[in-house]
């Protein structure tokens, strides 16, 4: 499988503090490298502030990086200009978390879905027919065409957002927590829709979520982020069945399981405290202050991402 996207040593630092204060940097993304293969879903998990959303925005060039590059179909997206950039915007897009703010409340569904077509000046024949086809594709129908976003439930709005992205026939879609604002009964509808569309159009997804159960359901491979770094990456089943990094192990053991019998039996790997401030990340391994297995070495040296078994990488001194 060829890599559609290659991320190389990507960094994004945000300045904090005013002009009078000494400038400090939030290292939101601090040197991540990975690739996404064509037709797969890469799950990106981590707690709030770990840099997963910033990574997603960097991948679509909604932010300019501090350092590093992203190759899309072999070309560095930060070097694209003019027509090439517009072509990239057509091929790569995003579905946001909150369907309540991602749609302009002043536009009808028809206008929302036609907007990308107008921006890219694509000839689609009869616009109404084209929009209708897309609406059917995401499970809506003609009665929804001239309504406004506020008349829809969260799940339906997310369908509209998906139709808007599909209108351009993209290759790559970032799904930034697409179901975390939705109810469970609707969440499964949207997840299944996304899976079906992926199969139908050979789409490539970057699926971002803090909900590990959902990530497991959606992803082929999973990358775990902690404080701007990838600590583990590998095949989804392997990550869940035999996680390596203590952080991954803790996360997986701590998800509440919807089964009271299992919940009572399960052993939890509790970790103390909360993710530290990314302005001054701890030295050495960034996870060491919360890690139940931390050794002296973890406090001083930063572990590299190494291939532990085929395709399964981990950054932890326990495995070197």
């Amino acid at each position: 499988m060829p890599a559609l996207i290659q991320v190389e040593n990507l960094k994004k630092y945000f300045p904090v503090g005013g002009k009078l204060l000494v400038k400090q940097w939030v290292k939101a993304v601090d040197g991540v490298s990975f690739e996404i293969y064509e037709g797969e879903t890469l799950g990106l998990v981590g707690e709030s502030g770990c840099g997963k959303s910033t990574t997603a925005r960097l991948l679509l060039r909604l932010e300019e990086p501090t350092d590093g590059k992203v190759l899309f179909e072999g070309k560095n997206i930060y070097k694209l200009r003019g027509r090439e950039l517009k072509e990239f915007r057509r091929k790569a897009n995003i579905v946001f978390q909150d369907p309540y703010t991602s749609l302009d409340p002043r536009m009808t569904v028809f206008d929302i879905i036609m907007e990308p077509i107008r921006v890219h000046k694509i000839d689609v024949g009869d616009p109404e027919q084209y929009v209708l086809k897309l609406l059917y594709e995401v499970g809506l129908n003609e009665s929804h065409m001239y309504r406004y976003p506020h008349e829809f439930s969260g799940g339906q709005r997310q369908r509209i957002a998906i139709a808007r992205v599909l209108a351009l026939r993209p290759k790559f879609i970032v799904l930034d927590e697409p179901t975390s604002a939705l109810d469970v009964s609707v969440q499964a509808q949207i997840l299944n829709l996304l899976k079906d569309l992926q199969k139908k159009y050979n789409l490539t997804y970057l699926f971002i979520s803090h909900n590990l159960a959902v990530v497991r359901y959606m992803s082929h491979r999973i990358a775990v982020m902690y404080l701007g770094k990838i600590v583990e990456i590998g095949d989804a089943e392997e990550i869940f069945e035999s996680p390596l990094h203590p952080y991954t192990r803790a996360l997986i053991s701590l998800i509440p399981v919807p089964d009271p019998f299992q919940a009572r039996k399960r052993k939890k790997l509790m970790i103390q405290g909360e993710p530290p401030n990314p302005i001054n990340p701890p030295p050495g391994c960034r996870f060491h202050p919360r890690c139940p297995f931390a050794k002296d070495r973890c406090k001083k040296e930063e572990p590299k991402l190494i291939e532990y078994s085929k395709g399964h990488y981990v950054a932890c001194w326990l495995y070197s």
Binding site: Q187, A213, R216
Partner: peptide, 12 residues
Amino acid sequence: AVPNPTRRMLKL
């Protein structure tokens, strides 16, 4: 409809 993180699920 709820995914269980401890099991592999093919279809919700």
